[in-house]
């Protein structure tokens, strides 16, 4: 299929892919953390943000923060369930790693082009809640426990709209493979005009909005950040974590944000595809195109995060069950009718 795949041995290819995946999570977390947390938020809130470290606009700040976390003392509470406590951040980060396995960045550049790609990505993303529950339970702290239970309640409420929002895309593309969805968008046409393909954001705008809202809840970002709720639960399930274990949660948070932004870009904005670019140039440009789209989606996510107050737990459940799920079901029905009619 591709030049690359033929010349490099299977084992080396796998090792290379694993290395890329291992690097992309901390790297994505770093880029998103720097761009949005340090720079965009500072501009929005009219504060300086770190400007000194590293010379140019304080680019070194997050690396320095990471190094600081590494040299902190590793504190485990006396009453904590030590093994569960230590393993919880790893579970959170692993779920992020696993999500990147199916996200394509080019015609062949994907670790595993699963036939059930969307299904796999969404299923794996919710694994992180197990890590959160483990963290909250094992910390032997009431604030942490409440945060973890809130996270679990939130997951049950928001996994459904997240899945239902994607169903419309899957129906329109006729496949659950992410590669298939991308090529369906690339080769599609809007009322016969195939100039830019057919990014599903035009036909599935309701699905896109639902996906973004539910993803915000899945990432526990404002307005759905009750599991960490600084002003109520101090830091929720993370309250007892320090040093590199806390860093793991941080990487997990921003890495998952990267993954969800990439997923949204793939499902609704055409992923790596650029109109009129095919073959080897698509292979080379793909990662860059996906990155630009991903940053656009992430900008929306973080814009909302820095603007809105936090909902209450019961209000969140009400929104999910009374508002999002009925709309998602209606969206599916309308999509099905249109699909059959045309």
């Amino acid at each position: 299929m591709s030049v690359l795949a033929l010349e490099i041995g299977w084992g080396w290819m796998l090792a290379f892919k694993a290395l890329v995946i291992l690097m992309i999570v901390p790297l994505g977390a770093l880029v998103l953390g720097y761009t949005f947390l340090l720079k965009m938020m500072s501009h929005m809130q009219s504060r300086l943000g770190p400007m000194d470290p590293g010379g140019f606009h304080g680019w070194f700040q997050l690396v320095g923060d990471g190094l600081k976390f590494l040299q902190k003392e590793d504190i485990i509470p006396e009453d904590a369930d030590r093994r569960v406590f230590a393993f919880a951040p790893v579970v959170v980060v692993i779920s992020t790693f696993l999500m990147f396995v199916v996200i394509p960045v080019g015609p062949v550049a994907v670790v595993a082009n699963l036939d059930v790609g969307v299904f796999y990505a969404l299923a794996v993303s919710s694994l992180s809640v197990i890590g959160v529950l483990m963290a909250g339970w094992s910390s032997a702290n009431k604030f942490a426990l409440m945060g973890a239970l809130r996270a679990a309640g939130q997951l049950i409420a928001y996994e459904l709209p997240l899945l239902l929002a994607v169903v419309g895309v899957v129906m329109q593309a006729g496949t659950m493979s992410l590669q298939g969805i991308v090529s369906a968008q690339q080769n599609g046409s809007i009322f016969g005009w195939s100039g830019i393909g057919n990014p599903f954001i035009f036909t599935q705008i309701i699905g896109f909005l639902l996906f973004m809202i539910a993803a915000q809840a899945e990432l526990s970002q404002t307005p759905f950040d009750m599991p960490v709720a600084e002003s109520e639960l101090v830091a929720g399930y993370m309250v007892e974590y320090s040093g590199f274990r806390f860093l793991f949660f941080f990487i997990g948070e921003f890495g998952t944000a990267t993954a969800f932004a990439a997923l949204a870009a793939t499902l609704f904005l055409g992923g790596w595809s650029l109109p009129g670019v095919h073959g080897l140039s698509a292979e080379l440009l793909g990662p860059l195109v996906l990155f630009v789209k991903l940053m656009g989606v992430a900008f929306l996510m973080f814009w909302v995060r820095f603007t809105y107050p936090r909902l209450r737990e019961d209000q969140l459940q009400a929104i999910a069950w009374k508002f999002l799920i009925p709309i998602a079901l209606a969206n599916i029905i309308i999509t099905a009718i249109i699909k059959v009619a045309f």
Partner: peptide
Amino acid sequence: LQVGALTPAFY
């Protein structure tokens, strides 16, 4: 800030 919005606090 107490109801969860960070930005007004800085303003």
